[in-house]
Amino acid sequence: MTNLKAAAFAAALVVGTAAACAAAWSQSPARVVEFESPLASPTPLQGYLRQPNSAGPSPAVVLLHSCNGNWARLDERWGRRIASWGYVALTVDSFGPRGIRNTCNSGAPVDLAFDAYRALSFLVRQPFVDPDRVAVLGFSQGAWLALASVEHGAIEKISRNKFRAAVAFYPKCLGSKGDMTVPTLILIGELDDWAPAQECRNMVEGRDDWGISRTHGQGVPVRLIVYPGAYHAFDAPGLERPIEFLGHRLGYDKSAADQAGDALREFLGDQIGEKAKAP
């Protein structure tokens, strides 16, 4: 290697190392936190918490996992990324405290519907969180729960603390009125056969097969993005080779995942980022 090439290689190594260090310094490591005292709840929730290294109270995002659980994997995939954008990220473990492995066949226990607000209640008590700028983000089953958390109804009404925005990756929209209390973003694949995109289109347009949707124009508008050629779990890199699971096709789609990441970052920035900060 010539001296010129060696110098160029060394410079590239220094720049690459500095970039990696900067990324590492942008947030603190994830740590497991308990939301409640065992005396306050028979199933006190826990989760992975990440904090950005920024001054002053930060906006925050509550992450809700799918019917497979995998909360640690969700934290690695999205919690780490969201914290690097300057948000506190709290990935909820809804199954461990309840002794559940998954609910893909059995369906979710009814009380899971309150987990998002239990996480929100924890976050608003933390001095490093801006209580007026917290969003909920869910995936599959967690996406349905995120939508339910911000719809006009009993779940949203009983909570003293409120979410500022909601994001749902490939939720089941059938049965949801779409009468949202806050800005909501839905990201879904056109070929999803577990959570059909058409059901979400119907919900957004104020109609569904059950006849329970809102009157057109009621509630806060919902934005729907449908990714052509994408299946359920299109953001999961472990599914580069598509699989069949319980009769449904799951597969990673890098293009859809990248676009969804950009859409998520833009949406969070608009709804709970610096633009949304109270004067």
Rank of each mutant, 00 (worst) to 15 (best):
Gln46Phe: 01
Pro242Cys: 09
Leu145Glu: 13
Asp115His: 12
His152Phe: 10
Ser176Val: 01
Ile225His: 12
Arg241His: 13
Ala148Met: 14
Asp270Gln: 13
Leu45Ile: 05
Ala256Lys: 00
Leu145Met: 15
Leu239Trp: 06
Ala12Ile: 12
Cys104Thr: 06
His216Leu: 12
Pro242Phe: 07
Ala22Trp: 11
Val167Cys: 07
Ala19Gly: 02
Gly229Ser: 07
Asn68Cys: 01
Pro196Ala: 03
Glu244His: 04
Ala260Ile: 01
Lys277Phe: 03
Asp262Tyr: 05
Met1Lys: 10
Leu185Thr: 04
Ala24Leu: 15
Ala116His: 02
Phe35Val: 05
Glu190Ile: 02
Asn53Thr: 11
Thr2Glu: 10
His248Ala: 03
Ala6Gly: 08
Phe169Trp: 03
Leu250Asn: 11
Tyr87Pro: 06
Arg81Trp: 07
Ser66Trp: 04
Phe114Cys: 00
Leu39Phe: 09
Arg160Asp: 10
Thr181His: 08
Ala256Thr: 02
Gly175Cys: 08
Ala23Ile: 09
Asn3Arg: 15
Ala83Ile: 00
Arg164Leu: 05
Pro59Arg: 04
Trp144Phe: 01
Ile272Asn: 12
Ala230Glu: 10
Asn202Ile: 00
Asn102Leu: 00
Lys275Met: 08
Arg223Asp: 13
Gly219Arg: 06
Arg118Gln: 13
Ser149Cys: 11
Thr181Arg: 14
Asp130Leu: 08
His248Thr: 02
Asp75Gly: 09
Gly229Val: 04
Lys162Val: 05
Glu266Lys: 14
Asp93Leu: 07
Gly206Leu: 09
Met203Arg: 09
Pro228Glu: 01
Ile188Arg: 14
Glu34Ile: 00
Ala135Phe: 03
Asn70Asp: 15
Pro183Gln: 10
Phe128Trp: 14
Gln126Lys: 13
Phe245Lys: 01
Leu185Ser: 09
Arg118Glu: 10
Gly261Phe: 00
Cys67Leu: 02
Leu45Glu: 04
Gly229Ala: 04
Val15Arg: 07
Glu199Asp: 14
Asp75Asn: 15
Thr2Gln: 05
Cys200Gly: 02
Leu185Asn: 11
Leu64Gly: 03
Gly251Gln: 06
Leu112Trp: 15
Thr17Glu: 02
Phe128Thr: 05
Ile100Ser: 12
Arg133Trp: 13
Ala12Ser: 14
Val110Thr: 14
Arg164Cys: 05
Asp258His: 05
Leu63Tyr: 03
Leu174Pro: 01
Ser159Arg: 05
Val124Leu: 07
Ser213Val: 01
Ala236Ser: 11
Leu264Cys: 08
Leu145Thr: 11
Met203Asp: 08
Lys275Trp: 09
Thr43Leu: 00
Tyr87Val: 03
Asn102Ile: 01
